[in-house]
Nucleic acid binder design. Structure first.
Lengths: 215, 215
DNA sequence: AACTTATGAATGAACG
DNA sequence: CGTTCATTCATAAGTT
């Protein structure tokens, strides 16, 4: 049972939703609005929140949340929880992003340098989600990061990318030891064990043998 | 029916300047100086991803994503996030589709069985943040159980930053007393500096004076 | 070319 | 907190 039939958004999704007119609306909602209950921040709200974040606020206290919310309500409907979530998400994503970038970065370099030089233009220069932490358009955290010091890169040394060689030449880095994290999915596990990409016969192209064994 | 009209994305904070330049060039010319377009997977990439998905992989771990990305980069430009999103979307859409069908069948049943649906419109608590710091605890949604673990509990010392008082000027809530930053995050306190709620008398304008650079 | 569909990307919300 | 879900936005690709 891996199917996550959680799906019962029904209650929420299908309910026609009250038109929350009690709020008299806000000038925001670019066209949508009334449909769902999901908060849709206005530009100003986002701007302010971003500024706060940028200035270092990461986990506002309850009071702060309330105050911020209060202030932002001027621009449109908003509740405390929205502010709460916003920071929560923003922070998490900021980090996630950074993490991914690091990995990516590492790897790509490797890959390009090895074997078959990739199609020139593949050398990504500026990616939203990578390098330069320039993913979020306007967020640009180009500030002193000293305020948030969170993840010493070294700490994660364990799960590092064991620099598997990327291409088929001799891939299958068994490196994926058995100790792999059972990150849950049975199916995933199953898949990971013996998947050999089906296209063996056609494969007009190279290699890439993905049997997940390398995962 | 859900009209996706969605006027425009005025603020949205990310606005990519749809009008980046001129004509619809949009040649997937990643890597060149221009803005990145969105990832355009090659047939091979899609194939592999699909295979992986079919073989059961639904929510690849970070490592897996990383590796997959590496492998696929052979076929063209690709980043971790692309892989991440791909799976995310693929999974979601499959479910969505299925849900739709499913729901179509017993939508009424559901509705009636769910006990006097409370005035959903009013359910929203105005301020769950009233007192308890750890807020929100009553949503028993019970999604699906999936265990995942790969990160050892980290004893992370919160970095304490000196405090600059928040909302210095005048708050509605007297709560702004000096020890308010005891509430939780010390770091939080550090940040809101300058957030002065100045409800000037100009209601047509941003009342919120953040004194952050704010353009 | 306008319309529709498919899908990449983003993000609010929430779970464990 | 990190992860996952649901929904929406944006845009490339496919259709008419």
């Amino acid at each position: 049972m891996e199917e996550r039939m959680s799906g019962f958004c029904i209650a929420k999704a299908r309910t026609h939703l009250r038109n929350s007119n009690n709020n008299k609306n806000s000038n925001n909602d670019y066209g949508s609005g009334t449909k769902c209950g999901r908060w849709n921040p206005t530009a100003e709200q986002v701007k302010v929140l971003t500024e706060l974040f940028r200035s270092g606020l990461r986990t506002p206290s309850t009071d702060q949340i309330q105050k911020i919310s209060s202030q932002l309500s001027f621009y449109g409907k908003i509740e405390s929880k929205n502010v709460f979530y916003w920071f929560q998400n923003h922070k998490a994503r900021e980090r996630q992003k950074r993490r991914r970038v690091n990995l990516d970065d590492n790897d790509v370099v490797l890959s390009s340098s090895s074997i078959i030089s990739p199609p020139s233009n593949l050398i990504r220069r500026d990616d939203p989600f990578s390098s330069s932490a320039r993913y979020f358009s306007e967020m640009s955290h180009n500030r002193h990061l000293q305020y948030y010091n969170e993840e010493p890169p070294a700490a994660k040394a364990e799960r590092v990318i064991e620099t598997l060689q990327l291409f088929p030449l001799n891939s299958f880095n068994e490196a994926t030891d058995h100790h792999q994290y059972y990150y849950g999915r049975k199916e995933a596990a199953a898949a990971a064990r013996g998947f050999s990409c089906g296209f063996s016969s056609e494969m007009d192209h190279p290699p890439l043998d993905l049997r997940l064994s390398f995962l």
